[in-house]
Each structure stands twice: as structure tokens, then as C-alpha cells.
Amino acid sequence: MHRFANPTRFLRLSKVLLPWSGGGGVLLLVVGLVWGLWFSPADYQQGETVRILYIHVPSAWMGLFAYTVMAGASAVGLIWKHPLADLVAKASAPVGAAFTFVCLVTGALWGKPMWGTYWVWDARLTSMLILLFLYLGYMALVNAFDDPGRGARAGAILALVGFVNVPVIKFSVDWWNTLHQPASVSRVGVPAMALEMLLPLLVMGGAFMFYYVTLLLIRVRSEIAAAKVRAIRLAQGHGA
């Protein structure tokens, strides 16, 4: 893994990967949308609103996954002072924030017809909202310093402290008696979901994963370019 963590190697590798991750993401998204919106059956209790599942659940997964990547990369950046790790953490944050926002909005639009309300201060919903604030706080903090190294360090500490929220979100439906339903895909044993709904859900999950990887590669490339511009400008400033 360390071999790929060199910026020049990263630029070369990401150039090869980008068309595949982008193309794969679009393909899976089209298949998942048609399957989820058209071919999958309506739920016997929830009717057609169950189709919100195919966008709500994958965005929740990816909101948590992107945070985990951000915290992991922050730890690597703090401990080994790896320059790419800081950039990965920084690049992951807006993508994760977007997923978390989509999860909250689609959840509200699902809650209204099923629970009778857009929002409740239930443990799952509240902890997910905190996740969004952690992302926004991280992004504000990282960009608040003139020295990008100091920004990355401050952000990394926030990301690691905030990571405690991730298991809280995951287990909130088990620890508290919430309005939000408990996990039905990652249960021990058989998933409590019909295969004709589980499969399009997994396809949409795959599409979102490809989207995340694509955007991460694009944004890290963008950060590398920005760092080089900054370095040249600094050198010119000193030279003049």
C-alpha cells in the first residue's frame, strides 16, 4: 500500500483508474435506478415509498464509510506524517458530507408518508445529523489555517475524536428504542429483506461506492495540483 502512497505514483495510477471507476459507477447507477424504480416490487406495508430505500440506505452506508476513510487517513497523516494521507482525508470530507445530507433529506421524505413526520429527535436521526455537523466542522477547520499542514493536523484531531459517533450511529437502533427501524441487511444470519429488493439495493450501493472512489481520485488529484501551485508561488515569493 505504501508504494502507491507516493504522489507521482498516485497521479499515474489514478489516471488509469478514473475512467473505469467513473464508467462503472454510471453503469451501476443506471442499472440500479431502473431496477429499483421500475422492476423491484412495492412493499406490502409501505407500498411504493419503499423505493426511497434504494437511495437512502446506500447514502447512509457511504456517509459512514467516507467518515471512516477520513478518520483512518487522518490517523495515518498524524502518526506517519504522510503527505497523501492528509489530502485523502481532506478530499473525502465533502463527498461524505454530500452522502450524509442526501441520507437525511431522503429519510425525511420517507418519514413523512410512513411515520407522519419529516423529523424526530430519535437516536439514529440525531446521530446522523451530528455526523453531518462533524463533516462541516472538519471542512471549516481544515480551511481555516494559512498553513495547510496545521489545518490538516487540527482537522485530523477533530476527525479522530468525532469517530466515536460512527459506532453510535451503527448501534443506535439497537441501544435505544427508536422510531427508525433496526438493521435488516447486515443482520447475523439471513438478511430480513426479500432478494428482489436486496439485489437492486446492493447494485445502488455499488454505484455509490464507485462514485465515491471516482470523486476521491479527482479531488486528491486536485489537491496535489493545488499543493504544487502553492509550492511554486512560495518559491517565487522567496526568490524575488
Binding site: L37, E48, T49, I52, L109
Partner: peptide, 8 residues
Amino acid sequence: FVWPAYGV
């Protein structure tokens, strides 16, 4: 509810 969820 379904279409705004996908739209947003």
C-alpha cells in the same frame, strides 16, 4: 415523496 428524494 419518491421523486423529490431521487431528484435531491
